[in-house]
Structures are given as structure tokens and as C-alpha cells.
Design a binder for these strands. Structure first.
Lengths: 137, 137, 137, 137
DNA sequence: GTGGTCTAGACCACT
DNA sequence: GTGGTCTAGACCACA
């Protein structure tokens, strides 16, 4: 995971997304222990408060669970993979925004579609146990 | 155009997006005069400064042009439709974020693809003169 | 004289400058009669109020004089060519601003100097009677 | 930096220019942290919003970068020193205006040239590390 | 009438 | 602490 300090996205959101990405890719499996807030902060060169906020966000979304005195773990699949229609709505809205912006940047629909396929391919929605290398994250 | 006062997006960004959407849909044509800052503010129940900020943002993106003492107008297509690769990169990144979130919400790739098609259809990249009713905005 | 309706400069200032330019170039001589406000407005496709404001500005600077019932005339040289140190100060300040901006645009000093020479050449500070064609103004 | 509250230039533009000047003179170096919006506002006796607007303008020009929650910093030279021909055109136009006004104030070309040399000397396009005192600002 | 600038003061997100 | 957003209301320049 890399934090882009010049990104318009807040650091903590980048952490949230990065961890989700790792889980989607199967790098992290349910039950795996995450780095502690301090370790993660050290690795990413962020303020521990920032990492803490990210963990809290993930926990509120049910993605991870914190066990006092033990650490933070990736929660079970069932717990996270429920379909919140409200959030689905937001997602659709975000996609709509992208389509409008794309139109302004001369990015065609087929191009968007190919991006979509390409990204999905890259993430590899593999929910099986095959881990991917994460050396450069 | 409706401003969602509970949205996490700033009002002025919603205005920016809304106007872009109207232009993409052909409701606004190049050369058309937008509502004045005050009128728009009144219609949307926003502070004129907020609308002004949106207009300035759109102007800096080349979407509209303001003529002092006259008003604000939709600029010519040629002027806005250049392809800024940096912004295209951002767009792709945003799409990536969506794919990850989708995976989390149990939204499948085919579903995303169908959304994409559906949204594009709805906007209808019609660059001809046929205006669409704006009732459904 | 051409009014650039997309220029950041106000129309009336462009008119002021344009007339001064014509006088500097010798197209207008002391005593010459200017177009009436209405004629000038018609020629330049401007609102008469705008031209009127330009004329008033020029008159307050002593560049032209208005004779009631007769029209507006270029004033005598002596009257206009006095050296107002306050305005000279402003001029110097404006030049300073240009130098700073130039530095930001990678425009070197020699380049600025050559521009200066070139522009002066173009205007041709000819105070003799030789008129220049003004067809394209 | 001094804000002239009687100047025809907007405050925020004066701030923009003043900061650029400081950078050109080497008082501010790439990476240096600017005063916070509130501090600068306090020092200049302006409203924070006005300073904020200046900072945003500078950021949009690539002169400075803001890091959320951290502050505002002078950006790297490479990032800002690209040559935008459109802006160069504006610069030339501004110089032209000055030449015309100069002619009206009996300021000769040689005098303008000496001003130019003098100003450049004063700013001293020193890109080395030698800071200048800012007492005379 | 138009948009542009400025102020004062509030609240929020981020570090 | 930082900057970002929003409001309310004032004044000005321009057409």
C-alpha cells in the first residue's frame, strides 16, 4: 500500500481503500491480523492518529474487528458482504459522476467499459485462497 | 438541478456537476446564457457566493465563460473538449475506487457494466440540437 | 481600433487605450475631431454609455476636450504631455509587476528588452505629421 | 509585504504578487512553509478569506502547494517554470499598454529600458541560496 | 441589471 | 493547529 501525499483524497481514506483493496485481492484473509496502528503508521510514514481513524472507519463498516489487547483482524466474509442498498445508491451516483466527467474529457463509453474490465481483471475478484504477491505494496 | 444539502459533496461541486450534466444532456447549448448568480442562488436556495464559486470553477475548466456585466454563457465545445491526460488519470483512479467498493457491496462486474450502459443511455451524449425535457432532474 | 470582447480589460479602457494609441501613432492630430459617442459606439458595436465613459476618462486626463455643441477634439500637445510623477510611479509599478510575472513564465530580461524595443518601434513615437494607415484598426 | 488598501488592485492580487516577488527574490525557497492563512491575515490585517483566495490562486498557478492540515509550501521550481504561451501573450500586451502610457507621460524609451534593467537588478533573479533581507518590502 | 471583492463569523475535515 | 466550505451582507465596477 502506498500513500500518495499529494492526492486530493485524505490520507485516512487512502488507508481505508488500500486495506479494502488488499482484502478484495485476497492478500488479507478473514481472520488475518493487521499491523498495529503504530506499526502501520510507521510503515506508511503517517501520524498514528490518521491510521487510527482509518481503522475506526473500517471497523464501523464491519470490515475489520478490534479485539482489545489482541489487535485488529479482518472480519468474516459474511459480516462484511451484506448489500446495503443505500451505499449501493451512492456507488451508482459516483459512477454517474464519472460518466459525466468522462464525457467532458472525451473519454468514450467503450473506453470506460474497457477500463472497467481491465480494473476488475487487475484486482481479480478472487475470493478463493490464492494470495497474490504484495511485495510492492 | 437539485442540491442535496446532506450530501458529503460541497454545494458548489454539486452545482458544477449539475451544470455539466445539463450541458452533456443538451439542455444547455453552447452560447446559452445561464441563470445569473443571484437567480441561480435563489432557485437553489444557496448563497450567491456559493453559486459564484461554482461558476468560477466551471470557468477555470473552460466549460463556461463570463462576460462582465452581461452574464455567464456556455462556451463552445471545441474550447472545452480537449483531453487532459492528468485528469483522465484521476478519472481512472476514481473508477478503480468504485470497483473496489462495489466488490465490497456484493455488486458484481456485470452489474457495474449494466449500470454504466444505463447511465450513458440516460445522459445520451446527444450533441445534436434536440433538447431534452429537464423534468426528471 | 478593435475591441476584444473576451479581454479581461473593460471595454471602456480598451477604447481609452486605443485612442491614445492612435494619437501616439499620429493617426489623430491635435485639433482633430473624434467620432461622436454614438458613431463610435456604432462602429465599435458598443453601448454608447461605454464609449461615453471612455471619452470622459480621456477628458479627465486632458487627452481630449469636449466643446459643447461642436464635438470632441484631440487636445493640444502641451496640455497632455505633462509629466505627472504620481502616474509615473504607477507606471513603474506596473512594469515591476511585469518583470515578476515574466520571471515566472521563463521570459528572460533580454527578451523583455527586445519586446520593449519592438513595441516602441511598432508604435513609432512619431510626433511629426506623417500619418499611418489605420485601416485595420 | 505591504498591502496598499487604496490600490486599484484587489487585496488578494497584491498578496499573490507579493508572494511571487518574495519567491523570485529568494526570500522564500522551494519547500519553505508560508505563514498560515490566519497568521498571514493577521500580519497583513486582512480577512482570512482574502488570504485564502490568494493562496488558492497561487496554488492553481502551481506556485505553492497546500497540504491539508499541515500548511502551505513553496513548490519546486520545475513545477512552476513552464512557459504558457497564452500567458506570455498577455504579458506582452501588458507591456504594450505600458509603452503607450509612457509615451503619454513623456517617459522615453531609454528611460523605460533603464527602469527595466533597474527592476531586474533589484529583484535579482538569484536562484542560489542567498537570501535577501526583506526590510525594504 | 451583471459579476467581483471583501468582511465577519460559523462549522467541518484533516493532521 | 491546518485549510475548506458556507452564509449573510456590504460595496464596487461594468454594460
Amino acid at each position: 500500500m502506498i500513500i500518495n501525499k499529494n492526492s486530493p483524497y485524505p490520507f485516512y481514506e487512502q488507508v481505508v481503500l488500500g486495506i479494502k483493496e488488499d482484502i478484495v485481492q485476497g492478500i488479507f484473509q478473514p481472520g488475518d491480523k493487521l499491523l498495529s496502528v503504530r506499526e502501520m503508521a510507521s510503515v506508511l510514514m503517517l501520524n498514528p492518529n490518521t491510521v487510527s481513524k482509518a481503522y475506526k472507519t473500517l471497523e464501523s463498516e464491519g470490515v475489520i474487528v478490534t479485539v482489545r489487547g489482541k489487535g485488529t483482524f479482518v472480519s468474516d466474509k459474511q459480516q462484511r458482504h451484506y448489500r446495503n442498498e443505500q451505499q449501493v445508491g451512492k456507488l451508482k451516483e459516483a459512477l454517474e459522476k464519472i460518466v459525466i466527467e468522462a464525457s467532458y474529457l472525451n473519454v468514450s463509453l467503450p473506453e470506460l467499459q474497457s477500463w472497467l474490465a481491465e480494473i476488475s481483471e487487475g484486482l481479480g475478484g478472487n475470493s478463493d485462497g490464492s494470495k497474490k504477491s504484495s511485495e510492492d505494496n
